[in-house]
Amino acid sequence: MQFGSGGYLPPAHSTFGGCGLPHCQIAEKQKTYDNGSKKLPDPSIRLNGVNWPAKIEDDGARSPIENRQFKGVLMEKGKAKKNKKFGMVIDLDKCTGCGSCMVACMAENNVSFREDETDKLLSVTWMRVYKLTNGKPFPDSEICYLPRPCMHCEADHGHSPCVSVCPATATDYDMNTGIVSQIYTRCFGCRYCMAACPYQVRVFNWYDPVWPDGMEKMLSPNVSVRMRGVVEKCSFCFHRYQLAKDKAYYEGRQDLEEDEYQTACTQACPASAITFGNLNDPDHAITQIVRPDHQLGGRSKNPRAFRLLERLGANPKVYYLSNREWVRHSGDNYRPDEVKL
């Protein structure tokens, strides 16, 4: 339990990296309430043996079973509200390929590295920047840099490619936030999720995470360090969401402002190419840019926008923008008879 200028900081033992068991999360919540805060939860609602704070309408830090229980509470109180659906849009025409997003991500999320990182297929990288070319010779050659975080696919009812295959329920689709989680302490390293993910966002810890002497003191206390033999991936900086929610709760607020929860890569991008927010909130910039059609799995109505491998039906929540047709065309596979370029 730590208090700093920014308010309450939850321990690293959170949904991301914690054991994920409801008793742990509930215990953490109750510790917060017991910490002298006047904003004690209303204990009047008791369902399934759990005291639920009556004023909280939406909290992403729950396990699947808690989600269901919590929905029951909301339905009971008639306060059911549309869930959040966090997503990201990256303007590829603005991206310079500087790699700030990758660096910020690594620093923010305690991503380990090795002395020899020449083999990128053994690297642990949550955010990876690809270099695309139009394949034409000079002077018509063009390049484009494409940052690729986890797509947090939604498919059918959260049936993301990776979530449904994990045999130990170590990864989950949170219906309240739209974020695909990874519970490191439950992952036993079968790597089926890596095989299932077409975006190659999931990486395996082939080696023990070791930091140079002294550098371990710079690690973030909010994110668990992963051990050898487990899979990890981008979490949309979920710990920041937890921090923001806790702060808002401490201040007696129910909802977050748009800028209160932003990912590290979004804030680090010097070209402001990345926009992050709630795709279900029409006031958020991302929704206004993307204009998702929820009837079509979130497909964008913006003609500049596209998603990677849209045809697979994974319904990713990361969108890309470009005025260049070849860039948009590079996002998916097309048979020769379909190519219009």
Binding site: C166, P167, A168, C187, F188, G189, C190, Y192, V231
Partner: peptide, 26 residues
């Protein structure tokens, strides 16, 4: 030998995700 954390192998039974083909296999 194949799993990254062999000592957690029992998770596949205890925390079984019944929708995973690998769970059924195990």
């Amino acid at each position: 030998i194949d799993v990254g954390q062999p000592l957690r192998g029992w998770f596949i039974f205890w925390h079984a995700n019944v929708h995973s083909m690998l769970t059924e296999v195990a």
